[in-house]
């Protein structure tokens, strides 16, 4: 197995072009497990830990550009206000040691339906920035996941960063696991309220072949909230309940070793109701404060 260690993004792209089968390695929290379990033996590993550009984040035009290798710990510590959904999700990733190494780029690369960072990226309507020797590309997050552990990345491309709008309203993420920490999602849900556009963002994890949004639930809620943004009252119970039902209906879960399909649907409806209650309460208190 060849071990490639570029020290710049352009060198990394060059090496990826020369070795399209090379597996990018950064935190190693997914890749090394696969190697240790002998699930794959790539021709080459492309170690990205010496590429400084990937570890930077920045703010521009009301958006965040988060380098693919920015570890979850940094997101939790530095981006909790501007990307609250992603930061809450980051807190649920693995253990402190894992969060010090693992990054959003890895979640996107693995494209597991259980990736914790993925539902909030869907809810925030993010974009994936890829890089190759032929240039950069922006892929809307809703077009990124093609199947279980299968994404829209081309063989010669690397994930350079993820872009999300700076939050204009409350965001939440909640994940069901059968342990109180360090657990893979049985199912998860992320919700983002976008009062600036009147849009609603959702993301469902671990309850379909890919992370996915719940568009009907988004449209339903956007319509219900249309007249409420500036004079927010408590939401009627039937709105909250209907939103939960529509989120559950958007899922396509299976029975597996971590839980049953029926439970996942049930839990998603609970998580959808609760995250809606929390975000709406937060929005109301922000409105009142103004």
């Amino acid at each position: 197995m060849e071990f490639l260690r570029p020290t710049s993004l352009s060198e990394a792209c060059q090496l990826k072009a020369e070795h399209p089968d090379a597996v990018p390695l950064c935190g190693g929290t997914d890749v090394m497990v696969d190697l240790n379990f002998d699930r794959r033996r790539p021709e080459a590993l492309l170690d990205l830990t010496a590429v400084p550009e990937l570890y930077e984040w920045s703010r521009y035009d009301g958006r965040l550009r988060i380098g693919a290798a920015v570890p979850y710990t940094a997101i939790i510590e530095q981006l909790a206000t501007e990307a609250p959904g992603l930061a809450i999700a980051s807190r649920t990733v693995g253990s402190p040691q894992i969060r010090n190494r693992a990054s959003v780029g890895g979640n996107l690369g693995s494209a597991s339906p259980a990736g914790d960072a993925l539902p909030p990226l869907l809810a925030a309507n993010g974009e994936v920035e890829t890089m190759s020797t032929t240039g950069a590309r922006r892929i809307p997050i809703h077009e990124f996941f093609l199947g279980p552990k299968h994404n829209a990345l081309r063989p010669e491309e690397l994930i350079a960063a993820v872009h999300v709008p700076v939050a204009s309203g409350p965001q939440q993420y909640a994940k069901v696991g059968t342990r109180n920490a360090m657990v893979i999602a049985v199912c998860s849900f992320s919700l983002a309220l976008h009062p600036d556009t009147g849009r609603i963002g959702t993301g469902i994890g671990s309850a379909a072949p890919t992370p996915r949004a719940a568009p009907e639930a988004e449209d339903f809620l956007a319509a219900e909230l249309a007249d409420r943004w500036t004079a927010p009252d408590e939401l009627p119970d039937d709105v909250v309940r209907r939103f939960g039902e529509l989120v559950a209906a958007a899922a396509e879960p299976i029975d597996d070793v971590r839980g049953t399909a029926d439970y996942r649907r049930h839990a998603l409806s609970v998580l959808a109701r609760r995250t809606l209650t929390w975000t709406w309460a937060e929005h109301r208190s922000q409105e009142r404060a103004q």
Partner: peptide
Amino acid sequence: IRLLPGGVSNTTHGEG
């Protein structure tokens, strides 16, 4: 929330 069911997974703020 770390001391509630679900812990850091943020599943409840006291509900249920």
